[in-house]
Structures are given as structure tokens and as C-alpha cells.
Nucleic acid binder design. Structure first.
Lengths: 306, 306
DNA sequence: GGCGATCCACAAGCAAAGGTTGTGGGAGGT
DNA sequence: ACCTCCCACAACCTTTGCTTGTGGATCGCC
């Protein structure tokens, strides 16, 4: 059975919003017949009666409303991808250039971009994904107006504001022995090789700093990997425990693919900080964007607002 | 500019996982040329260089990895939709029939379905979405083996187990005056008409019960609406404040479309409870499914584990 | 340095999915 | 009973995406 396409999901949502196939067709800029055809095909594919068709219009059945709500999640994700990808594209003269560390670019920028789009901040944002050091440099040389870093050391000469506090969490596959433990001693963690991102990424530094505060040092990592997908694959295939950003783990924890291990120690926290050139006045688009970032922080999920 | 299709995103993920266009093509059951063509089209559409093509294979650029991680979110959502929709389809003799209240069916079943799929519980689940009373009846008459309800009254004769605690939250649009307030007095809430789901849905009962404990009663609702989309539309268009499940609000809070208002009172909580016929022994698939539900609870996001 | 293997890209042909125009039928409101 | 609005059926057509066939580049190995 083939899966529903995003166009079909968008059509479904349009029908729900407008209350008839004809109105939905108008909204989407196609003919009524096209909508009728496609929605019928969607029902056939899913094997569900989604629509209650009547002379006054078409409403959704209970099943239809369920599917529509799930569809909303899909299109929201896709819209976030589109918005974020657009901000990565450099072929357009942007009114605001931003350099963000990987974690922030990956997990927060999509949300921020959708938000700026929705609230019509009059700025086209151009995003560059770098590491924290790169973001600092980019701000220093004036290549970007705004930077976002995930290391605690706030460089001199640059103005900064902490946006949120990220947490590095320990995750394992559901079958892993640690998955059942309520609290893992810090010493046990210290002597266990972990899967984590490459050295530069700040994740390791955060864990090492936390261990150092308890006079412990970190075992050599089990693996240095450079992509979230690789970490996921490793951990899921029984590759042991991984230390990753709570932001990166969030979806996998929500869907049960990964389990969080609570370590018997203070949280491994690190600030997410916005930086800019303190000797210049921040332009309008930058100020607006900073406000959005500050307001939304990590979103509702994990972590702690400042 | 047209948006990327899910097929393209799946292809991108396959290339990332396998390390070459050729290998990805094999995995997807198409020719290498098809992948090459489509990925080139994807790059053109997004205006980004996603791939580093070499004689040894193709890896993703930094941009490519970012887009791939975002793409993972999209396909995960779509897979959840597919799995949940499959469980709604009744045309297949299911080994486990479940009746769930709307909130649970809408927000938790997709996650649970994906999880049972992944962990290969050998049960095809057939889901019926009803209200809490309907779920109780369905279990009583033996129409389903397992029910999930969101009301505190645990009926006699039925065995039950609390899966998680859901919370009803008050949300407003970002521009609403309440959005800025740190704590809203309960009395203010009580005399403000709220947007909420229709009477049967349990949401109103939960709020009313909480107010009753403070000797307050609820103002007549501003509107009774039956779909999440309608609530969202109302609130966003300045329609005031809404009372909805934290599960339903979660994504909108995360993306900043809605803002939560913290009420100066204990949380409006209600248990999410699994029920089954206490006089029968629970069959294997039902026990397994119950274990999944119990283990995952609300996922990582909102609410409190039992 | 030549040779084979591997991987990716270009080009032409083809099948299918999706959209359009044209038309018919049913249910409400007047 | 009529008009209006909305949805479905049918034939045609355009576009999209896949296939087969082929060429060119890079790496590893003798």
C-alpha cells in the first residue's frame, strides 16, 4: 500500500478548513473535480471514510478529523523544513545574516523561521551553519549580524544574551540494561565509553566539565560520529549509550525509540547564547529575530528557560 | 517554488544511510539514474548543495545533514500517520481491538502504533475512536479487549491501570494580553468565557472540577468546537483563550503558535486510564500493547508520568 | 602507467499520475 | 416546481518520473 502524499494531506486540511470540496479547490487553485478525485483516492488508499458528503458541503467524519490532525503534524514539519532550508540558501540578498552552531541550526532555527514567517518580521534570514568558534569568527569579522553559540565562554568585545539552557542527556536503546535503571551513578557513567559527536561539537566538553566537577574523568568515547542518524543507528543496534543534546534526543524520546538514562548528578547543562558585535547598534531585523529567539527559547519541550 | 516531496526526502535519507546514490537506489528498488536525477532536482529546488559526490560514493554536505535531519522529522510524522490510520481501518481481522477516547486516539496512538510496529509485537491493532463512555461500553460488551479513557471515574467490574496523567492547559495567541502574564488568578479564568471542545469530551469537566474545588464556577464557554483545527483558528484569530489537553497543545506551544497561560492554581489534571474486562484474563497481544502504552506514557513532552 | 571496477551524469523513450473541460445527478431553500 | 449549490463520472491531455543505454571521471591495483 502506497502512502498518502503531502499534497493529499494539504487538500484534506483545506477541505476541513473550508467545509467543502469546491471551496478547498478554490483555495488550492485547482478545479473541484481534481479535489474530488484525489480525496476519493486518499480514502481508498487509507481504507477509511474520511468525508461526510452532503448537498450543503463536505465535513470530516471522526476518522477524518483524526487523520487531519495527524496530517497537520506532517505539514507543519515540512513547512519548518522548507522555511529553514530557505534560510540556508545564500543566493538571495538577505536582510539579516545569522551564523548558528549545528545544534541550534538543526533544532531551533526551523521553529524560529516558521515563527518569523508567521509573524511577518520583514527580514529574509540567511543562515550559516557552523560550529561555535565559527559563529564567533563570523560575528567578529562582520560576516553576520547575529551568531548563536552553545559554549559557555562568552568572547570579549561581543555582546551576548543567553537564549536558553540546553542539556546534554544520556540515551540508550529500550533494550539496554540502563533503560530500566532509575538513577545511574555518575562514576558508572564516567567509566563507560559513550557514543558522541566529534570533539569540536561542545557535547563532550559539557560532559567532561560535569565529570570534572566530581573529580572524575571521561572514558575514551566508544565512537566519534558526525551525524545524528549515525548516532541513532549505533545506539539502536545495541551500540551502548550516547551523550547528545536534549534537543536532538527529543523526538526519539517522545516516540520511544530511545530511552533517557537519569544520571545521579546535576544536569549537564550549557547555555545557548546569542552574540553580536557590541560596538555596533543592532539593526531592526536582528533585534526582531533576537526577540523571537528569546521568546521561544527551546519551545515547550525539554530544558529550562533562562 | 514547489516544496520537496516525501519521496525525495526518503531518498535523501537513504543516500545518507548507505553512502552512495547507487546503494540508495538499490535499497529503494529503483535505478541509480532515478536517484541521481531526483536528488539533483531536489538540490535545484532547495537551492542548496546537499551532496558531496565522489568516485568512492556520495556523502552529505553540512547542509545536506541538516536537511536530512529535518527530513527525518517529516517522515517520522508521516509514518506515524500511516501506522495510526492503518489501525483505524477495520477491514482486516485484528488480533487486538482497542477503543480509545479521542484525545488518546489522536495524540498517543500514533506513537504507540509506530512503537509496536518497530518492536514487532505480533498483533495487528484495530483502533476505534470514541469518547470515554463509548470506550467503557465497548469493553463491557466485549467488542474490544482494551479501552483507554480520560475520565477519573473507573467503572466497576472493569480492571484498570493508569497510564499517565494528562493536563488541561489554558492557551492564547501570542498577541493576547494573557500571553505576557506570569500567573493568572483562578477567579479571572473562571469569569472568562473559554473556547473548548464540546461538553462530552471531558475537558470541560476537568476544568469545572478544578474550579469547584476553589468554590468557583465556570463561565459559559465562548464556543463549543469539535475539531482541534477550529480551536486553533479561533484562538489565533484573537478568539480569546482556550482550554485544551496539553497533548493537543504540545506542538503549537513548541512552535510558538500558541502561548500557555499559567493559572495560579494546582494543574488541571486527569488520569489517562487503560481498562479491560477484569473477569477475563488479558491475552498476549493486549498485555504487550498495554506494556508499550505504560512504558511510553505521554512520551517525553508534557505531563507527568504516574 | 595502463586496466578494471565503481560511481555518477546525460539523453531519449515510455508509462502513469494528476489535472482540465464537459456534463449529469441529487439535496435544500424559495 | 424551480433554481442553486455541490459533488461525481468520463474523456482527453500534460507533466512527472522511471527505465534503458551510454559516456566520463576517479580510485586502487598490479
Amino acid at each position: 500500500m502506497t502512502e498518502p502524499s503531502v499534497e493529499e494531506l494539504r487538500m484534506l486540511l483545506a477541505v476541513q478548513a473550508r467545509g467543502s470540496l469546491t471551496a478547498a479547490a478554490e483555495e488550492l487553485g485547482v478545479t473541484q473535480q481534481a479535489v474530488s478525485q484525489r480525496m476519493r483516492a486518499l480514502e481508498r488508499r487509507l481504507g477509511l471514510a474520511l468525508f461526510a458528503r452532503a448537498a450543503r458541503g463536505t465535513t470530516l467524519t471522526a476518522h477524518g478529523r483524526l487523520v487531519a490532525d495527524w496530517a497537520q503534524g506532517v505539514v507543519d514539519q515540512l513547512d519548518a523544513l522548507s522555511a529553514a532550508a530557505a534560510s540556508l540558501r545564500a543566493d538571495r540578498q538577505a536582510q539579516l545574516r545569522v551564523a548558528a552552531s549545528m545544534t541550534i541550526a538543526e533544532h531551533l532555527m526551523p521553529v524560529w523561521m516558521v515563527s518569523t514567517g508567521a509573524h511577518a518580521i520583514d527580514a529574509r534570514v540567511q543562515l550559516t551553519a557552523v560550529n561555535s568558534a565559527g559563529a564567533i569568527d563570523a560575528v567578529r569579522i562582520g560576516q553576520v549580524e547575529l551568531g548563536f553559540i552553545e559554549t559557555p565562554d562568552v568572547p570579549r568585545r561581543l555582546a551576548s544574551r543567553t537564549i536558553a539552557v540546553d542539556e546534554v542527556v544520556i540515551v540508550v536503546a529500550p533494550g539496554h540494561p540502563w533503560a530500566k535503571r532509575r538513577r545511574l551513578p555518575l562514576a558508572t557513567l564516567a567509566r563507560t565509553p559513550l557514543v558522541m559527536r566529534e570533539a569540536g561539537s561542545g557535547t563532550r566538553a559539557t560532559v567532561e566539565a560535569a565529570l570534572a566537577r566530581a573529580d572524575l574523568s571521561l572514558a575514551p568515547p566508544a565512537a566519534d560520529v558526525s551525524t545524528t542518524a549515525a548516532i541513532r543507528a549505533l545506539v539502536l543496534s545495541g551500540g551502548g549509550a550516547a551523550a547528545i543534546s536534549a534537543l536532538a534526543a527529543r523526538d526519539d524520546l517522545a516516540t520511544g525509540r530511545l530511552r533517557r538514562v537519569h544520571v545521579d548528578a546535576p544536569p549537564f547543562e550549557r547555555p545557548l547564547t546569542a552574540i553580536w558585535d557590541g560596538e555596533r547598534v543592532l539593526a531592526e531585523p536582528a533585534r526582531d529575530f533576537l526577540a523571537v529567539a528569546q521568546r521561544m527559547g527551546l519551545g515547550s519541550g525539554t530544558g529550562t528557560a533562562p
